[in-house]
Design a protein around this nucleic acid. Structure first.
Lengths: 217, 217
DNA sequence: GCACTGACTGACCGGTCGGTCAATGTGATG
DNA sequence: CATCACATTGACCGACCGGTCAGTCAGTGC
């Protein structure tokens, strides 16, 4: 926990860097630590140390620990939202779209692990609602978008009528979330061979689901 | 957080109850609180209060907070293990077995919510390994048992050869874990209709998977 | 020169944390 | 009754928590 690193990042930039330099360093440090260990397990001292500022300065830029956490979560949610937006491309056949969604969704989760962990932790924790609103909105739009894709496919007859789109969406997202959460554990099991190859996991997932989804095999 | 409840549970039993009365009350209180809020967010004072004893007495029966947590987790794991053992009944056809497993597994998770939350939290947390060994063992045996069922079904030709048993097992367990974790969130989504009916969720899950699994639809 | 501002800091606050300890009560054994 | 083992307790400790505060300092406008 002792990291007095980066006392001064780039001394040559002291004039060119904006006044918000410290604020951004604090946000970055908080993002890392909150994502890694959660709200309770991170102290303002630790954040200040990693950001290279004093604890009092953190309170100068953010009125409370909760405020800082909300700021971090808001940024994470907006970044998450941006990634999700470019997921539902309307091109191609339904099967291709679903395969694409499966691969892209998991890949985007793994791409910025910190953000995913941050949002997921806040969303699935049942403690005091800190910023559950933001996280739930992101998750909700993600979910609704997927349901929409499935429903449109269902109307065109590319998805069996008996299938509940919300159930299938839950299964798709749940499979990705579970992979994200448990890959470190699954890695220890001899039977599991896909923990290091998420794209293979996505492909197998789509394969299993499709052959139960397609109306005519 | 103020619950001075049960100062004396049953005063008539003071003699009939064994000397380990306090120990059991401490374990019960710790189980509840740890399952509800996790290790860090629970103080020894809170546990002592709920158990109706002094904090010093808790330290008399358990040498440290970590020790108490491990004791709770050990019990939870053994109970979890007992429930899992009666899951893999060898009777019936493969399809029925898989349907049965899907329903029973989720039901057993929901039956003792505290235990499930406790084990899952410890297992999926990436912080310091408190008792990850125990939780991982339980989860591992659960997983291995399911893989075994699937493999035997595959040998008899009741499961497509292209299917990776470990992948299918991950999907089955992951679907249940995700449902368990996110049902409070999913409940807020208008498209979702199964949050209050886990047996319907299990049935739909089996339905989707089977029609992709069965070699001849 | 001077007033003003915002970034920044070390020292400090009340409170809670996990953990310790000497003292007291109690029940069984002799 | 004396003794011993053990359950139980309130008082206490140092460490750390989130948060506050008085004050330093560099830059800016007049």
């Amino acid at each position: 926990m002792k990291e007095p690193t980066m006392p001064l990042a780039e001394p040559t930039e002291t004039l060119s860097t904006p006044a918000t330099d410290a604020t951004e360093r604090i946000l970055a440090a908080a993002k890392d630590l909150f994502a890694e260990s959660g709200f309770d397990a991170v102290s303002m001292n630790a954040i200040a140390d990693r950001a290279g500022v004093s604890k009092a300065n953190v309170f100068h830029h953010f009125k409370s620990k909760n405020d800082l956490y909300l700021a971090v979560l808001k940024i994470a949610c907006s970044e998450s939202h941006a990634q999700i937006d470019q997921l539902g491309s309307d091109k191609g056949a339904f099967v291709a779209r679903l395969r694409d969604y499966s691969v892209s969704h998991l890949a985007s989760m793994l791409q910025d692990e910190k953000i995913s962990r941050l949002v997921l932790r806040d969303l699935l924790e049942n403690g005091p609602q800190r910023g559950k609103e933001f996280a739930e909105q992101v998750f909700g739009e993600n979910f609704a978008g997927l349901v929409e894709i499935l429903r449109s496919g269902q109307k065109k007859g590319e998805l069996r009528k008996e299938i509940d789109p919300a159930m299938l969406a839950t299964l798709l997202i749940g499979a990705d979330v579970f992979f994200f959460q448990s890959r470190d554990v699954l890695r220890h099991f001899p039977d599991v061979s896909f923990t290091a190859a998420p794209e293979r996991y996505s492909a197998m997932l789509a394969e299993i689901l499709l052959h139960g989804i397609l109306p005519k095999p």
